[in-house]
C-alpha cells in the first residue's frame, strides 16, 4: 500500500469518541442525554428524599410554604395596598399567580448555579451536563404538582360556596402547555446565567434580586387589567411570563388577560431562549472546569 492509501484507511477507521479542543456549535449530543435518563430520575429521587430529611413536618412544608405566602400577599397587597385582584377572592388570586411563578423561580434559581454548585461532581466524572438542570425541572415538577393540588382544593371550595369564579373548561387542555413554557423559560434563563458565570461571577449577584423584581412585572400581584398606561402594559406583556400567568388565572378563575397571540409569542420566545442557552451551555461545559 502506498502512503496515500494508508492515510485513507486511517481516516476511515471508526472511533466511538473523539475528544477535541472545541465542539462545533451545533454538535449537541442529545442521544447521550437520553442514555443517561436513569441518572436523571435518580437525581430527582435524591432531591425529593433529601430535602426534608430530619424535619418533623417533612413534606408538609411543601404545603405550608405557598399558603403562608398567599396569606401574606392577601394581607399586604390586597388588604393594605388595596391592589386589584380582578374581583377575585384574594387568596385564590394570589395563589394562582404564585403556583406557576414559584415553579419558574425555583427552576431558574437552581439551574443558574448548575456549574458552580456541581463543580465537585463535574470535576471528577463525565456525564451529559444537561442532565443536572433537567433533573431540577423534574424535581420541581413534583413540588408544582403538590402546590397545584392545594390550589385546586381551595378553588373547589370557592367554586362550591360562591359564584364569583368562572372556570373556562374549554381551555383546560392548555395547562400542560403553560407548565411546559414555564419549564422552558426557567431552564433557558437558568443555564444561560450558569454558562455566563463560570468565569466572571458578576451576574450571580443580579439573579437574587432580579428574580424578585421580575415577579412584580409578571402579573403575579398586579393584574394586567389594572394597568391603564398603554406603554407600561405593552412592556409587561413583552415579558412572556405575564401571558402565561394571566392565562392560568383566566382558565381557572375566568378573569385575566387571555390572548392567543401573546401566548404564541411566549412560546416562540421560550423556544428561542432554550435553543440559545443549550448551545451556549454545550460550548461552556467542555472546559468550564478550568475557570470555575
Amino acid at each position: 500500500m502506498d502512503k496515500e492509501n494508508l492515510l485513507q484507511t486511517a481516516n476511515n477507521e471508526h472511533w466511538d469518541l473523539v475528544i477535541k479542543p472545541k465542539n462545533k456549535w451545533y454538535d449537541i449530543d442529545l442521544m447521550a442525554v437520553w442514555r443517561y435518563r436513569d441518572l436523571l430520575m435518580l437525581l430527582v429521587r435524591r432531591d425529593f428524599v433529601s430535602v426534608y430529611k430530619q424535619t418533623i413536618l417533612g413534606p408538609l412544608w411543601f404545603f405550608i410554604q405557598p399558603i403562608i405566602t398567599s396569606l401574606t400577599f392577601t394581607l399586604i397587597f390586597g388588604g393594605i395596598a388595596k391592589i386589584s385582584t380582578d374581583g377575585m377572592p384574594g387568596i385564590l388570586f394570589y395563589m394562582a399567580g404564585i403556583t406557576l411563578w414559584t415553579y419558574f423561580a425555583d427552576c431558574l434559581n437552581k439551574t443558574s448555579s448548575t456549574f458552580i454548585a456541581n463543580a465537585g461532581v463535574f470535576g471528577k466524572v463525565y456525564f451529559p451536563r444537561l442532565i443536572m438542570p433537567l433533573s431540577v425541572l423534574v424535581s420541581n415538577l413534583i413540588k408544582l404538582g403538590i402546590q397545584v393540588a392545594i390550589f385546586i382544593s381551595i378553588w373547589i371550595y370557592f367554586l362550591a360556596t360562591s359564584n364569583v369564579i368562572h372556570p373556562q373548561w374549554q381551555y383546560m387542555w392548555l395547562l400542560p402547555v403553560l407548565v411546559f413554557m414555564m419549564a422552558g423559560l426557567g431552564l433557558g434563563f437558568g443555564i444561560l446565567i450558569s454558562s455566563l458565570t463560570t468565569k466572571y461571577r458578576d451576574l450571580t449577584f443580579l439573579v437574587g434580586f432580579g428574580v424578585q423584581l421580575l415577579m412584580y412585572g409578571s402579573s403575579v400581584i398586579i393584574p394586567v387589567s389594572s394597568i391603564t398606561n398603554e406603554k407600561l402594559k405593552m412592556m409587561m406583556l413583552l415579558n412572556p411570563l405575564t401571558s402565561i400567568i394571566e392565562s392560568f388565572k383566566f382558565i381557572f378563575l375566568g378573569s385575566g388577560y387571555y390572548s392567543v397571540a401573546w401566548l404564541l409569542y411566549g412560546l416562540v420566545f421560550m423556544l428561542f431562549i432554550v435553543a440559545l442557552s443549550v448551545l451556549i451551555f454545550n460550548k461552556v461545559e467542555k472546559s468550564f472546569m478550568d475557570t470555575v
Partner: peptide
C-alpha cells in the same frame, strides 16, 4: 472528558 484539551485530540 472533565475538561477539554487546548490542542490535539
Amino acid at each position: 472528558r472533565v475538561t477539554a484539551p487546548t490542542i490535539g485530540d
